[in-house]
Design a protein around this nucleic acid. Structure first.
Lengths: 135, 135
DNA sequence: GTTGACTCTATAGTTACTATAGACTTTATA
DNA sequence: TATAAAGTCTATAGTAACTATAGAGTCAAC
């Protein structure tokens, strides 16, 4: 199949597929006489694997590592688990940060009466006074 | 004061300050005879305001809007609140996404016995079988 | 007068794409 | 069969918010 069909099947954009090839996540496929990329079922699987990993927010570099590991099936697998676990920790950390962020934003939002002028706006006052405190 | 001192006081890098100037978040300061940037207390306040907004994850474009609003103190302030509220929604949305992500990653992590080979690794098997299901 | 710390501008790199230009190939229609 | 439309090709630039570097100039201290 050509790149457009693969793109449709995987819900990837054509450019993204070419990008993955350039970044060595996908093997360079064969070409037709007119130089069009020709994919098979194995390319499809590979791309769906990559997509699956991306929905888990794994970076391209992490995915590249996983793909390498896949091609050495007899080595120890704890490195895979280590990667996933460190990824989980990052996600947890980010959730914590965002929760604290949300609190601050809610607090800010509550200081705005919403019907005054900029000059009276509690949000801007708060942002500015926080600054003053630190100076 | 020169840029290095401002950087220390605000815990910003020198490059970041120059970047904010280029992006018009900071006014271009006066220059010394030798063409060094010269800052005063007002620049310090301005930069700390920007920093404060950045810790709330406001984008530079949002901060630029706030700065513009600040310079027209007599217009209505509900636009400020609108921006903050839409920002809160984005943060909440992202927290939801990350929580679901975390669940999936935890599930994956539990499928790894951690002492087998890549071939036996539950994580890779899971990632691959999820793919197979979709094909 | 020279060393070292600081500053200057301009440019490239980061991540994971997306968008564009200009040319070529293939398919569908008249 | 000619041509128009759709798809594909490569190469390049843009996105956000910086960070890092090169190469040159400035300034203070010894």
């Amino acid at each position: 199949m050509k790149i457009g069909e693969l793109a449709k099947l995987t819900d990837c954009s054509v450019q993204t597929i070419r990008y993955y090839e350039k970044e060595q996540l996908m093997k360079s496929p064969e070409r037709s006489e007119g130089n069009f990329r020709l994919y098979n079922k194995s390319s499809l699987k590979q791309l769906m694997f990559i997509k699956q990993c991306r929905t888990l927010d794994l970076t391209l570099s992490e995915i590249r590592q996983l793909l390498e590991l896949q091609s050495s099936p007899s080595i120890q697998c704890n490195s895979v688990n280590k990667m996933i676990d460190s990824h989980i920790q990052q996600v947890e950390q980010r959730i914590k940060e965002l929760n604290s962020l949300k609190e601050q934003l809610n607090y800010l939002s509550n200081t705005c009466s919403n019907n005054g002028t900029i000059e009276q706006c509690g949000i801007l006052q708060k942002l500015t006074s926080d600054v003053a405190k630190n100076v």
